[in-house]
């Protein structure tokens, strides 16, 4: 038995040493989550508008075009449950906060990060926002949550090639380097729409409750909420499931009717956004983000 234990431990030691070293090295790499957590702490006295949501918000709302100080706290694949946790964490620390802008996308009511293939991203909320979204060891570690091949790439990019690991601006906004994806947008609107179409409505009820929690929490702090269904490219819009989309729009309208501090802006079919405003079927590019941000800012100003 002693021999067995000794041999097993000896075999595992190099593996564990490499894993621990990698964990430390990976955590040392600056990332968007850590940066936003730090930035919001610096700007907490001045932020008046907080933007939450997934990549649609992250790329779609550029705080630079808002009249009053705004900060974009969106992240790729961030779902409504996480929007709520982030708002809960920061709302008390933002004394001047007046408006919360949240995307109400085609997918918002039908997904939660822990149920998706991107669930590994939960580790970022655990590690860098201290949100405690999962107790799983795997989701509290860089090494265990991300594929080794991706981690090796991250280490190589940062330590050997000295590539920037931060993709957001000082206001939390992220943008695509190129105006469009290389592939014509018309060709893959269908694919994206299909990917975004839910198989069931299991999460809808729970996600509507999260929306309500966000509005109620905001109300307690005299903050207004603006739900925004962002513009989408025709190739995407034309392939969406009508009942899923109607459910989303109906939820937005209902929230607007039910809560005095909540407004809903449905820009899905907006004529103001042309092909040149999209990076891909469901994401705006720099141009589109400018248009949308000015439009939402105008809406906030007029609502006062």
């Amino acid at each position: 038995m002693k021999r067995f234990l000794k041999q097993t431990v000896l075999f595992l030691i190099p593996v564990l040493v490499i894993m621990i070293t990698m964990e430390l090295a990976l955590r040392h790499i600056p990332n968007d989550y850590e940066l936003k957590n730090a930035q919001i702490a610096l700007k907490k006295e001045s932020i008046k508008t907080l933007i939450l949501g997934s990549s649609h918000s992250l790329y779609g709302f550029n705080p630079e075009y808002f009249t009053e100080e705004a900060y974009n706290l969106g992240h790729v694949s961030q779902t409504i449950d996480l929007d709520y946790l982030l708002l809960k964490k920061y709302i008390k620390e933002l004394p001047k906060l007046k408006t919360v802008v949240i995307r109400l996308s085609y997918t918002t009511l039908h997904e939660q990060l822990n149920e998706s293939t991107e669930s590994w991203r939960q580790k970022d909320y655990n590690l860098y926002y201290n949100l405690n979204v999962s107790n799983k060891l795997k989701l509290n570690s860089e090494v265990l949550s991300v594929k080794l091949r991706n981690n090796i790439k991250r280490l190589k990019n940062y330590y050997l090639e000295h590539e920037a690991s931060i993709s957001v601006t000082n206001s939390g906004w992220a943008f695509f380097e190129k105006p469009h994806v290389v592939k014509p947008i018309d060709d893959f609107g269908w694919t994206v729409a299909k990917k975004h179409t839910a198989k069931d409505n299991n999460l809808v009820e729970e996600n509507i409750k999260f929306l309500e929690k966000i509005v109620n929490l905001s109300n307690e702090h005299s903050v207004n909420v603006i739900l925004v269904t962002l513009p989408a490219h025709k190739s995407y819009r034309d392939n969406l499931n009508t009942s899923q989309l109607e459910m989303v729009v109906a939820a937005g309208e209902k929230m607007k009717r039910k809560y005095s501090n909540c407004n809903y802006l449905n820009l899905m079919q907006s004529d103001s956004f042309k092909d040149i405003d999209f990076y891909d079927p469901d994401h705006l590019n720099t141009n589109g983000a400018k248009k949308l941000s000015l439009l939402v800012d105008d809406f906030i100003t007029q609502s006062k």
Partner: peptide
């Protein structure tokens, strides 16, 4: 033998994705 087993361990970690 050890090199072979470590290679297998490496491949397991390298290609490990979502459970």
């Amino acid at each position: 033998r050890l090199a072979f087993y470590y290679s297998i361990v490496f491949l397991i970690f390298y290609f490990n994705g979502e459970e």
